[in-house]
Design a binder for these strands. Structure first.
Lengths: 339, 339
DNA sequence: TTGTAGGCGTTATCAC
DNA sequence: GTGATAACGCCTACAA
């Protein structure tokens, strides 16, 4: 591989001048500049990025931590993040934590070892106290995940309110026995959702059912299991708020196979407005997050932190969401027939 | 940030010895080693990765080029690739090309500038002659994409045969007027599929229909458009091979809205066995690729190339696929009623 | 067993 | 305008 030195020799000048040309700096005569450009072409010279990194102490790379990329929500998120980051000239490293605390910490090492200039945490399973020390090594922005502190910037929607709205919707549709499912790991988000769910129920003096089977529902398969479990153990349940469209889809699918009527026997709410939720029969009521906007803002905030020297204030950006009412909760006919 | 020098000073030894400790090399007394470890802890020392890269001329990073991560096939692919690469200690950089030739070339620069040790191309829209020169900068492995050469290693299934099988299946189900859709960019894969499709038709003396509207079908929305188009312009079409489950799902969805019966009026085949294809009503006949196996093999091959000094032979790995027959093509009742 | 010194390729500082 | 020279932080002959 040709180095800057080779180019300098061939062009009959010094490394310094070549460097000036590479970086489009002033104070180089047209004549020299052309000679150098020629030499670079001839040698197929390309600046070595490791050397640049060492010299400049920046990597132009960020790490994005997320549970798993095949969850469509995170797929969309990283798609948008990659696009946005690339506009600023940053590479994106994918870090799948699978909700494992250790993996999360391992990937944060990238920040310490200066392999990345900053980190987006869309996976956040450790205690904040474990994460905080990494802030000394570089900026971190929480995306989707959040908590109650002002020691870090965050971009998210109000999951508590979203779950509240969805639950109220179920109640308005006449549901009296409503269940709640969430993914394996207990995160701040799932706590927030549960809290909103509880509030809606208690405001209407409705009972709260709990079953450990409901706290590990992550994907379509889990959704199917949930429905089987409901049918055999809790057949009175007539509404369910799932934290995910995949789980909701699994429930709808299993219901179709097992003669359970949605929404008549069971009204279902998903989360994230994946394509899936629209295509299922019946289509699934869900909550839409402005993923692209959130991704853009996350990168904007992170880039600002990475590029400014002095540590600036941390900010919280709360985005609006939308409850999309679809057929899986449309019990208007059910309610009527009761009267 | 503490450097190796700082540690050395604090521990009262030299950089060399510290480096030995870091890299677990012999010839260090227990005593010194402990002192040095202590010093590292005290200073919170972490080796600087940029320096290491420069010194070792390796980045422990690979780039994965793919069209878009939200296409579930590529989502699964990169999930598996990331996991496998991480076992070998490699980071993964996501590079979405959106099927743009220029983006593809831009990302290949990462290899030239030594930002990555190797590249997986799961997006391949340029001519091979454009790509080939990059091989001088480091190893490249084609995954999913392939072509007729032995200048590069490839991991893929036989798309020609897969399309042939699927088309034969449609014919066996009694379809007489069969259409073919493919994604925007003309790739080697789409040519292969088309060739298999053609062969099946001509073996059965069936006509081949062509319509430019069918060559840009990529996602669910496009599938919906395709069905609308079929209904108004080619209502006689009774079978369709789509290159994608999303397109197939779009067709099924639009059919349900528009009183078109699947499979009675139109039998539909997708590709990739996404969750979606199973969950749709009717469930969609599709072709399953062994994504995880392909990802594993791709990384295995790439790692070997990256780690061995002398350039070795290029190999082609062709994986088996499976045609999953589901309801979207089950016309047994149709066929019977004709008799 | 330990330390010295040079270099990986680049850029910033300073002197000419 | 241009060019030596000294870092950036690490590893590794080689010498002791």
């Amino acid at each position: 591989m040709a180095t800057i030195e080779d180019v300098a020799k061939l062009a009959g000048s010094s490394r310094t001048t070549v460097s000036r040309v590479i970086n489009d700096q002033p104070y180089v005569t047209k004549d020299k500049k052309e000679k150098i450009m020629d030499a670079m072409r001839q040698l197929g010279y390309v600046p070595n990025s490791s050397a640049r990194r060492l010299r400049s102490q920046r990597t132009e790379t960020i790490a994005v931590l997320l549970p798993r990329i095949t969850n469509p929500f995170f797929g969309h998120l990283i798609e948008a993040i990659e696009e946005e980051a690339s506009k600023y000239g940053y590479q994106v490293i994918v870090c799948q934590t699978h909700d494992k605390k250790q993996k999360e910490l391992d990937y944060l090492q990238l920040l310490k070892t200066k392999q990345v200039d900053g980190v987006v945490m869309a996976s956040f399973t450790n205690d904040w106290m474990e994460i905080k020390p990494f802030l000394d090594s570089g900026p971190i922005v929480l995306c989707n995940e959040y908590m109650d502190t002002d020691q870090v910037s965050m971009v998210h929607i109000d999951h508590r309110q979203a779950a509240y709205d969805a639950t109220i919707h179920l109640i308005e549709q006449g549901c009296q026995h409503i269940a709640f499912t969430s993914g394996g790991q207990e995160t701040h988000i799932s706590r927030q959702r549960k809290s909103g769910f509880h509030q809606a129920l208690s405001e209407h003096n409705l009972p709260f059912y709990s079953d450990s089977k409901w706290t590990e529902a992550l994907d379509v398969k889990d959704g199917q299991k949930v429905l089987e479990h409901l049918k055999s153990v809790h057949p009175y349940i007539d509404g369910i708020f799932t934290g995910s469209d995949e789980v909701a889809a699994g429930i709808v699918y299993a219901a179709a196979q097992g003669n359970w009527r949605i929404p008549e026997d069971l009204a279902v709410v998903g989360f994230d407005n994946q394509m899936l939720s629209l295509l299922m029969v019946p289509s699934i009521t869900t909550i839409e997050q402005p993923v692209e906007d959130m991704a853009r803002k996350t990168i904007e905030v992170l880039v600002e932190k990475m590029q400014s020297k002095q540590p600036q204030r941390h900010t919280r950006f709360v985005y609006p969401y939308e409850l999309l009412k679809r057929n899986s909760t449309d019990r208007s006919s059910v309610t009527q027939s009761v009267h």
